[in-house]
């Protein structure tokens, strides 16, 4: 797979494509699955912060971080890791602030992945 467009900053397109070389259909499925799943993943983190539950925050942020790592999306992955660490250390008073930084990064990633799919004239299956 080659790409003439400028690489987006929200995820490392080159690393992503390299990892899925020869598995382009799996790459599409992965992106589609992520675009569908992302709201639930974010909701889990939001709930944990709302409930002031450090363990819940640690687990939900850990899950989000793991998913983001598949896209080599370093900016958002680092913020998810920060939230996970806050949950682990039971210091979640500033977690809302970190979530405020994470949200636009996730939005950017969401849009960049959609752009990536459109650039290849690909569409996620409609439910």
């Amino acid at each position: 797979m080659t790409d003439q467009n400028l690489p987006p900053l929200s995820f490392d397109q080159k690393a992503f494509l390299s990892n899925f070389q020869g598995m382009e259909d799996l790459a599409e499925q992965t992106i589609c699955s992520f675009l569908t799943t992302l709201p639930q993943l974010v909701f889990a983190v939001e709930s944990a912060i709302q409930n002031q539950n450090p363990k819940e925050l640690e687990l939900s942020a850990h899950t989000l971080k793991g998913v983001l790592s598949n896209f080599f999306a370093e900016p958002s992955r680092l913020l998810a890791w920060k939230l996970e660490k806050m949950g682990h250390d039971q210091l979640i008073q500033d977690a809302s602030q970190v979530l405020l930084e994470l949200s636009p990064e996730l939005t950017r990633l969401f849009e960049d992945l959609k752009f990536f799919m459109n650039g290849r004239k690909l569409e996620c299956p409609k439910k």
Binding site: M23, L26, T30, S33, N70
Partner: peptide
């Protein structure tokens, strides 16, 4: 994480 499981499953199978 179902997402991570399915992804790894798909990749290993391919």
């Amino acid at each position: 994480s179902e997402f991570d499981r399915k992804l790894l499953h798909g990749a290993l199978t391919k």
